[in-house]
Design a binder for these strands. Structure first.
Lengths: 147, 147
DNA sequence: CTTGACCCCGTACCCTACTACAGGGTCTAT
DNA sequence: ATAGACCCTGTAGTAGGGTACGGGGTCAAG
């Protein structure tokens, strides 16, 4: 079975050597072993595990989430399929919450952009500044004003 | 004109005293002055400025953005309305970019949740773990698989 | 005159996911 | 034997937006 040194693994999967050492410190990816000179080496199982980590990251999982998923992956008989789905659903809810928050930001910003003349005129009466001062709430924004 | 001590301002606008001192260090909100005992005090202008800051934060602006907006707010004749709209549009684009990213996360997570039996069975054949291992790509996810 | 609620300053710490650097060892080619 | 590429460890720094703490001063009530 062929093995990889840390730099080879890093360039193969497009991450940095420092990241791999960091993942080791964090307990996400331990090297398969050490050569007599102390160099880390990785086998195909480690490559697959790193792919798992990177793919999970690309899905939006945090390293903490990934730590849990890896624990299940290593010993899948000890965990239920439901546990895996719980982690995923929990993340999904968090992502949906974040999306909703950003959509509120987007709508507020969009209303401000729409209301602003945006011209090369002095900003003295700029509707965006007025809206942030709440002197002149922008229509559609009333529910956020104090009474 | 009535003035407020830092704790009064903090409780009036529901932020912490530490936050106000932090904003002062960051140049966002300087106290109106200091009493003879060294205590900060704030007048109504400062209250309005803090409201501006908090409202801008609620819109998703970063403290760095707010710093720029405040500079314009202080001297609106020196800046154009277009400059204000540029900041806002820039933020809007950033927010839209973030939303799109999170929506990709959400879709990937949703596909995984849908595909998972989620039962109290061992996770050995869990479709989520398989998908993250890319042994068993979930339909709709092919564009992310390596070839 | 002491207690408790305020306030001051400066510094350190939180989180996440890295990245950088210092100071050293190892291996390969020339 | 020496350059250059690679590897090791340990520690510190980054961004953003604060929070916490230690050690002290101030002020009003009892």
């Amino acid at each position: 079975m062929n093995t990889y040194r840390i730099g080879e693994l890093a360039s193969a999967l497009s991450c940095s050597v420092e990241t791999l050492r960091y993942y080791e410190r964090e307990g996400l990816l331990t090297a398969t072993g050490r050569s007599s000179n102390g160099y880390r080496f990785y086998n195909e199982d480690a490559v697959r595990q790193l792919k798992f980590i990177l793919r999970a990251k690309a899905m939006g999982f945090s390293l903490e989430d990934i730590r849990e998923l890896l624990a299940i992956r290593v010993d899948p008989k000890a965990a239920s399929c439901g546990a895996v789905r719980d982690i995923t659903e929990h993340k999904l809810q968090w992502v949906e919450h974040k999306i909703a928050e950003l959509q509120r930001f987007r709508d507020a910003l969009q209303r401000m952009v729409n209301a602003c003349c945006g011209g090369d005129v002095p900003a003295e009466h700029c509707s965006i500044l007025l809206a942030l001062d709440d002197q002149h709430p922008i229509p559609g924004n009333e529910e956020h004003s104090r009474d």
